[in-house]
Design a protein around this nucleic acid. Structure first.
Lengths: 143, 143
DNA sequence: TGAACATTATCAAGCCTTTGATAGTTGCCA
DNA sequence: TGGCAACTATCAAAGGCTTGATAATGTTCA
């Protein structure tokens, strides 16, 4: 009745995600960024003026997690957020010139990793993998 | 030259893993376990006497991470490790009866989630997904 | 207008995980 | 036998994530 451990797909998915994260983390450490910080910068580049809450949604994390990353990026001077003079509700953030510079350098490294995965599969295989993962997510959608 | 963000497979893999973890975490919270603790108990059940280092390898984490989880499980009385009288090198761990009991309850809940994913795919699709993920991992293997 | 609801931001506490460093144990072999 | 390499355990610090709770602002609509 209980699924055999070796039959569980979760392990394969996790193992792949862990391997990908490990490679990215190593590559990004050279430019002083964590994977979470890189993901945030990438999202800010494509969505200038996004709020912390919006960033959280894009990155699939809680607003609190996004806020912590934003705080670190602000401290590094890579992101600028509108001042919170007397409690503003939304505080849009955007890359600073330095943030954009660092991101270009980081993206060159990180996208190389993604490219390796990309190149290891044929277009059909990539489409198939996306489709299969989407099916898994659909099966996990609350029910 | 740089891969378009929407084309990166990392996001799909991560999104699926996040969804799976979220569902499991919710299900396991009912029995007072975290996903990491559940994974450790499962590994201990199938490998009685495994060391912290071995557990770390099985769970794809560092020995430090495994040690932290083991410590929490010991504190809960779910795992027992041989005493460290004067600095033993390896300290094998195993489930306590209570640990085995909790694990059965946890596994019933967690494997139900895995079963949902399992059932959403045909045997061919499952094999295909495994194969594609394996190809990704191979592409990521240090080179 | 005013109340209810949704959204945004934060503080706090607790876990998990990593890197880096330290130390004891075991095993192989020159 | 001596010594080096590999393995095991553990402390410490830093990041990132979560749940839970609080507070201020926006929005909708009766």
């Amino acid at each position: 009745m209980v699924l055999d451990v070796s039959e569980r797909l979760g392990f394969d998915i996790k193992a792949t995600e862990v391997a990908l994260m490990a490679r990215k983390a190593t590559a990004l450490r050279e430019v002083g960024l964590t994977v979470a910080q890189y993901a945030a910068l990438l999202t800010l580049r494509d969505n200038p003026g996004i709020t912390g809450a919006g960033l959280a949604r894009s990155c699939l994390v809680t607003p609190q997690a996004a806020a912590a990353v934003l705080k670190a990026l602000e401290a590094k001077g890579l992101v600028q957020r509108e001042s919170d003079d007397w409690n503003r509700t939304a505080r849009p953030g955007r890359l600073t010139p330095e943030g954009a510079r660092i991101l270009r350098s980081a993206d060159a490294r990180a996208s190389r990793i993604e490219q390796q995965v990309h190149d290891a599969l044929t277009p059909k295989q990539r489409a198939s993998l996306r489709q299969l993962l989407e099916t898994c997510r659909a099966a996990l959608a609350d029910d």
